[in-house]
């Protein structure tokens, strides 16, 4: 802190003005309040310099969700990188560390995206690696998955994704994020819907009531008759509630009467959704 006071000795800090008798005022730690005093002055002066870069890092440590701080940091980076490109590679390292410490923070993941965008293709592989690490800690991290899809859509690299999804589903077949990603990858690379149903049913062997897998299989059955037939063949005589739910979808056009009867039965088997199943049953006609 003393070093910041010295580094910004020429800057007159600006205090926060919350207006009279504010509500929800935060009792800031003295250090944060002091740093923010300099930061507000920088917002006025638009200074873009190494010391401002350091100031933003110090503030992000107090509050990683301070989007204005991150915005100013990016402005500094872009300004300084025009003379020294290594600034951006340093930033990749630094922000990876912050992302590890704040895995659920919007600002840091957007910061990564903006940084990769600035560097371009060369940063894409590293970004996928960072995301893989984040997903090892939390396999359902929403920001990490969103950024992964963005990297792939922007820079390619889809080929390695099948193996990536398989490994995550082997680790936890209930990971819905991994199923969603697999669906996106298959849509991109192309696939045989019948094969998708077959391999999903294999995964269902040991996880009979896994919604994620059922919904995935049904998506292919919806768009492909042969896939629908394969799934229907499995569901006929299968045990469990999810297979009955799938039957409602698979039979709703070809045999609405039977689909309605099953929906009516589901109103008892799946009592939390009794209202939903009754509505489905009514919508399909009277059944038998």
């Amino acid at each position: 802190m003393a070093s910041f006071a010295a580094a910004f000795a020429d800057v007159a800090p600006i205090e926060q003005d919350d207006g009279p008798a504010p509500v929800c005022a935060i009792a800031y730690a003295p250090e944060y309040a002091r740093l923010m005093g300099f930061f507000r002055a920088i917002l006025e002066s638009n200074e873009r310099s190494p010391r401002v870069l350091e100031l933003t890092a110090a503030l992000a440590e107090h509050n990683a969700a301070h989007y204005t701080v991150w915005h100013v940091r990016r402005e500094c980076l872009w300004a300084l990188a025009s003379n020294d490109a290594s600034i951006l590679t340093d930033e990749l390292r630094y922000s990876a560390e912050v992302a590890r410490e704040n895995p659920k923070n919007y600002q840091i993941w957007y910061h990564r995206r903006a940084l990769v965008e600035k560097i371009g293709q060369a940063a894409a592989a590293d970004e996928l690696a960072l995301i893989s690490t984040a997903l090892r800690d939390d396999a359902k991290n929403y920001h990490a998955w969103s950024n992964r899809l963005w990297v792939l859509k922007t820079y390619g690299g889809w080929a390695g994704e099948l193996e990536f999804c398989t490994a995550l589903l082997d680790a936890d077949v209930y990971n819905n994020s991994a199923w969603n990603h697999l669906y996106q990858v298959k849509a991109q690379l192309g696939c045989d819907p019948v094969e998708e149903v077959r391999s999903t049913l294999e995964r269902l062997n040991h996880a009979r009531e896994n919604e994620s897998a059922w919904v995935y299989a049904l998506a292919f059955a919806k768009s492909d008759e042969r896939a629908a037939a394969a799934l229907l063949a499995h569901c006929e005589g299968a045990e469990g509630v999810r297979s009955q739910m799938a039957l409602v979808e698979l039979l709703k056009t070809s045999d609405p009467g039977r689909a309605s009867t099953i929906a009516r039965r589901l109103a008892e088997l799946d009592a939390t959704r009794a209202r939903y199943w009754r509505r489905r049953a009514e919508g399909l006609g009277n059944g038998t």
């Binding site: 800031y28 730690a29 107090h62 990683a64 969700a65």
Partner: peptide, 24 residues
Amino acid sequence: KGLAGLSGGFVALDASRPWLVYWI
């Protein structure tokens, strides 16, 4: 109590003051 003032631990919501007001 939240309207009256928040402890230093709320610094992570220092960029969400209008949210705090609305939620409360």
